[in-house]
Amino acid sequence: MLEASGLMVFYENMLALNNVALRCGEDEIVGVFGANSAGKSTLMYALSGIMLDVEKKERMAGGERITLAGEVRYRGRDIMNLKASKRARLGIVLCPERRRLFKESTVLENLKIGAYLATAAQAKETLAYVFKIFPALEKLKTRLSGFLSGGEQQMLAIGRALMAQPKILLLDEPLLGLSPLMQAMLMRAVREIRDERRIAIIVTEQYARPVMPIVDYAFILENGSAVLEGVRDDLMDNPDVKAAYFGV
């Protein structure tokens, strides 16, 4: 469904992504694991098209020179030069690292802003669905989103992304800084979203243990290159992976 090949991103002369190939099929959950600065967020920015905006802003301000190369295909169509809002319209929606909620808006408003691409009927239906999988949000509807706890903020970020009617959801480090209990709850919710709404999901994380149980296929990034990939069980049996990402 979403397929990247030969993806390269340079910041000046620093290679942030080196010849990365990645694919995610329909209804699949794909995990991307890697340490800090392995290139996970750069990859998500490249897939969602935000990188084009970063590149443009840097160029206009005379800042870092960013170079993008390679190919991103969505359902066979080359989308490498499509800007982020257009990709979102196709159904590629990024739920970014550190959530980036609209902090001066209430929970409900965040969800409403998220529904920009949805029809009125879709928005209503998705809102009910978001409150069903995250009942905590319904009680906090009128609270400013900046005042939520980390877990609640993450639920809202995922909910807001769902409002945009994604066909493939990119979750960038959704578990960052959350308690193990909250992590498990979120991962259950992510699987439920895939099963019930038939949305493909790519999820990145530093630490594989809480995410591994729900993924179908996984990639491991190191210094900007995809060094390992495989179906979940193969990777879990790999001693290198165990040592690096499971803390065994």
């Binding site: 809002s85 257009k86 980036r100 609209f102 902090k103 001066e104 808006s105 409403k112 920009y116 945009a164």
Partner: peptide, 19 residues
């Protein structure tokens, strides 16, 4: 609402399909 979203975080708005 889209204008308000953009006023708060332009990039987050773009991720949601706001041009």
């Amino acid at each position: 609402l889209a204008l308000r979203g953009m006023a708060q975080d332009e990039r987050a708005a773009m991720m949601l399909g706001i041009d």
